[in-house]
């Protein structure tokens, strides 16, 4: 019973962390072009960071 006192909050916190990570990714537009993202890893960028 005592272990539950910290195990349940820990489990919920980790779950919430994952959820908020997903919501952040969604809001920052990372899911807007899934097809494009899959192809972009094939592009060589000649060592120049993107503008």
């Amino acid at each position: 019973m005592t272990t539950l006192v910290y195990l349940i909050p820990a489990a919920l916190f980790l779950g919430a962390l994952g959820l908020s990570g997903f919501l952040w990714a969604l809001r920052s537009g990372q899911y807007e072009d899934l097809h494009g993202a899959a192809e972009r890893i094939l592009i060589d960028r000649d060592d120049k960071p993107e503008r």
Binding site: A11, L12, G15, A16, G18, L19, F22, L23, L26, Y31
Partner: peptide, 14 residues
């Protein structure tokens, strides 16, 4: 909808 699925999925799992 995607946000709703994420929240519902999180809640349903836990």
């Amino acid at each position: 909808l995607i946000r709703a699925v994420a929240v519902a999925g999180f809640a349903a799992g836990n």
